Computed example of a mutant assay.
Amino acid sequence: MKNIKRIACTLPLAVLLASTQAHAEPTLYLGMNGGTMERLYADKVLPAFEKANNVKVVIVPGTSSDILAKVQASKDNPQMHVMFLDDGIMYRAIAMGLCDTLQPSPALAELPAKAKIKEQAAAVSLGVTGLAYNARLFKEKGWAPPTSWMDMADSRYKDKLVFQSLASSTFGLHGFLMFNRLQGGSETNVEPGFTAWPKTVGPNVLEYIASSAKISEMVQTDEAALFPLTPTQVTALKMRGVPVEYAQPKEGAVVLNVAECVIAKNNQSELAQKLAAYLLSAEAQAPALEEGDQIPSNPTTPTSARTHAPVAEMAKYLETAVSLDWDQINQQRPAWNSRWSRSIER
């Protein structure tokens, strides 16, 4: 026994660590939004997968742009295994070769076509960008709820429209591109939108904001009357007592899904594919819906008395929702951002 102990004590530290790690549970790193979403997944969604597969899933928090930048920086030796990105940014990730093809699974097969992005990614939650408004202010002024993206140009909202910056927000980009379409433009031609904006929507804008974080405060002080937003975010604000309502534009809202992909060249490809499949399942999406109001992409996800209506409403919104040409957008967006900063937000 003494000889065995003596041999163990003389083993190199690296060998001892390797032996310990061989018996330790593997770790997967999942890149996704921080804050509320991070806590929701850490507390309610991931524990069942971790227990069933004897694995630890560590969330790497950040915006979609942050996560994409981190994965791109380590693309030859990825530090993450699976990532969540807004659908537009996911198209960029796929074009960069950062995503593996999703392996077939029962959960993937259950998703509708609109929830899939090529062969590499799929939505974990569904959403749309439409218009939201300050319900208290609208009632006080006797204004009818907005019905069109062109309402952003209505003079009654002078200095009452809050618009997210095109350069930093998907909401702002959606709002601009829908306005551009109504001016006769398209994802390949934004000249009509840029030409018309300064004389139509521009005079109504009180402030161009970097993200939607300021909207709650600006509604409560009645600075903001109208702004692009998602039904899910409107629900979250209403639960905090903020007087907002969602309005579906007659031209259609814009599809805004949160999608996942398995990161290419990761060192746990089989487990990463297994995690990705789990996150598309009704088992994973049910707690995300009930505890975090994340609208499920898997249509077999059960609903409760509280969540049935929001899920049904989203299905209705998606019937007429506009899907943008993200391959075209991502090619031109840097130039648009530069022009926007130079001519709109100057």
Rank of each mutant, 00 (worst) to 15 (best):
F227D: 04
P243I: 11
E251C: 02
P296S: 01
E260Q: 08
Q248D: 13
V234Y: 13
L102N: 12
A8E: 04
V128P: 02
H174R: 05
L17N: 10
R240P: 11
E313Q: 08
A113E: 00
L166A: 03
L280Q: 12
L289F: 09
S341E: 14
N134H: 03
D76T: 08
A167K: 08
T235K: 10
F179N: 02
L13F: 05
L40N: 04
L161C: 06
P310W: 06
S74I: 02
P78H: 10
L173A: 15
P296E: 01
A309C: 03
L206G: 05
F227H: 06
L173D: 10
L237M: 15
R92H: 09
P299K: 03
M1I: 10
G172H: 15
V262P: 07
G88L: 06
D87G: 08
A113Y: 02
D159C: 08
G252N: 01
T200N: 12
T307Q: 10
M152Q: 10
P145S: 10
K56E: 14
S168F: 15
P146Q: 06
P243D: 03
G34V: 04
K158V: 14
D154T: 09
T300C: 12
L275H: 07
A305I: 07
V311H: 14
E245T: 01
R342I: 02
Y317K: 04
A122F: 13
N298M: 09
A259E: 11
P26Y: 13
T36P: 03
N266F: 12
V162S: 11
Q233W: 15
H81N: 12
L40M: 05
W143M: 05
S269C: 04
L131T: 01
I7P: 02
Q331P: 02
A93G: 07
V254L: 08
P145C: 03
L126W: 02
S105T: 00
L280M: 11
L275T: 06
A107Y: 15
D325C: 12
T200S: 09
Q285R: 14
T170C: 01
E251G: 01
C99L: 05
I89D: 07
L30A: 07
A18Q: 13
S186T: 15
E140D: 11
G184P: 00
L137W: 03
T36C: 05
D222G: 00
R92T: 14
L182Q: 12
T300R: 14
F179A: 04
M150K: 14
G34Q: 02
T200F: 07
T20V: 14
D327Q: 09
C9M: 11
